[in-house]
């Protein structure tokens, strides 16, 4: 059987969904087989997926930043990311699976934790001993999840439609304009910025927390905490800056 190139692309486009289904299936298997049964194993899985997502964020940050400095650099990187088979059919599905794994696990842990205290306190002074960010990971996480829905709808869905449904022509210069158009709307720009603030809070706790979860609490921890705080502030701030830049400059 001969498969022409557009059919290959269609098959490829659906690959992520198969991976997602497979991942959901394998989370189920892991939970049943006991691999992720213990509290510590779940914590470590949460930490590893969180660390992985932070790597992705750093990468996304640098690409976004180029859009502020050079339209053509941004276009050529976007074109590469959008058409390189390794990125499209290997890294992208891994990323989607990583996000899904992370938030499903977050909800699972949260439900278990709520069950651990069936009768709540009449008076609970959480602020006395822990930061807001650390106590509300499920809230900041849920806002990020809602944001991801919007973000996929804004960029990923049209991109998939352009490439794999409409079979739009290869065009190396379309990305910058698509980006700039999106940030014309003040509502969207505001929603993006609010989400980035919650992302910052999520990471302010998440960064150092993930090292503690994998058992790394040692002489480097103080330094890592400082670095983590910087990361948690600078990366989301960069995203806010890019959104505002395009909102006010076109």
């Amino acid at each position: 059987m001969i498969i022409n190139s557009s059919e290959k692309v269609v098959v490829g486009a659906f690959l992520p969904y198969f991976c997602v289904l497979f991942k959901l299936y394998s989370i189920n298997i892991m939970a049943k087989s006991g691999l992720l049964k213990s509290s510590i194993a779940k914590k470590v899985a949460m930490a590893l997926s969180g660390l992985f997502l932070m790597l992705f964020l750093a990468q996304h940050f640098f690409i976004n930043m180029t859009s502020v400095f050079s339209e053509s650099v941004f276009n050529s990187i976007s074109h590469f990311m959008g058409n390189n088979p390794l990125v499209q059919f290997v890294i992208q599905p891994i990323l989607i699976v990583g996000v899904i794994f992370h938030f499903i696990m977050g909800f699972v842990l949260n439900i278990q934790n709520n069950n651990a205290r069936p009768i709540s306190y009449a008076s609970y002074n959480g602020a006395a001993n822990a930061s807001w960010a650390s106590r509300n990971m499920i809230i900041s996480g849920s806002v990020i999840l809602a944001f991801l829905g919007l973000h996929f709808y804004d960029f990923w869905v049209p991109e998939m439609a352009y490439k794999y449904v409409e079979f739009g022509p290869l065009n190396e210069t379309r990305y910058f304009h698509e980006l700039a158009e999106k940030f014309e709307s003040p509502v969207r720009t505001a929603l993006y910025c609010i989400s980035f603030v919650l992302l910052s809070l999520h990471l302010q706790h998440g960064f150092s927390s993930s090292f503690q979860s994998i058992g790394a609490n040692n002489k480097f921890s103080k330094g890592l905490q400082g670095f983590g705080l910087g990361f948690a502030i600078i990366i989301p701030l960069g995203f806010v800056f890019v959104a505002l830049f395009h909102h006010f400059n076109h």
Partner: peptide, 14 residues
């Protein structure tokens, strides 16, 4: 510890 129903640590430090 898990069988007793204790929750999962999220490193709040409380």
């Amino acid at each position: 510890m898990d069988e007793e129903g204790f929750g999962n640590c999220t490193n709040t430090g409380a």
